[in-house]
Amino acid sequence: MTFLDYAVLLGFALVILGVALASIRLIKGPTLADRIVALDMMTVQLVAFAGLSALQSRNAAFLDVAVVLALVGFLATVCLARYLERRNAINREDRE
């Protein structure tokens, strides 16, 4: 193993730690908005994970995974944010 392999392993460890900390917030999160923020950031970190996989396996196909993951994560975040706003409006109309 060269020092580059060790650096990639260290990068994997740090990214996995970041995802783990965000998933604690995903479970704890007092409101739905906290959970949306945690999920959004976990998607961005999975993009970094795909990049590290491309480095480790010397296979550039993982970059396609990264691009598609960024796209799907953005759509998911937009949908969840719209849902959060709409849900509040619908609940308010029901109360009145």
Partner: peptide, 25 residues
Amino acid sequence: VAFLVVGGGFFCFAAGLGVLRLPDL
């Protein structure tokens, strides 16, 4: 490449720590 990988990993870790520890949304 090694420097960029370790730096990127550090910032990903810092982002996770911030999401867990900072006070409000």
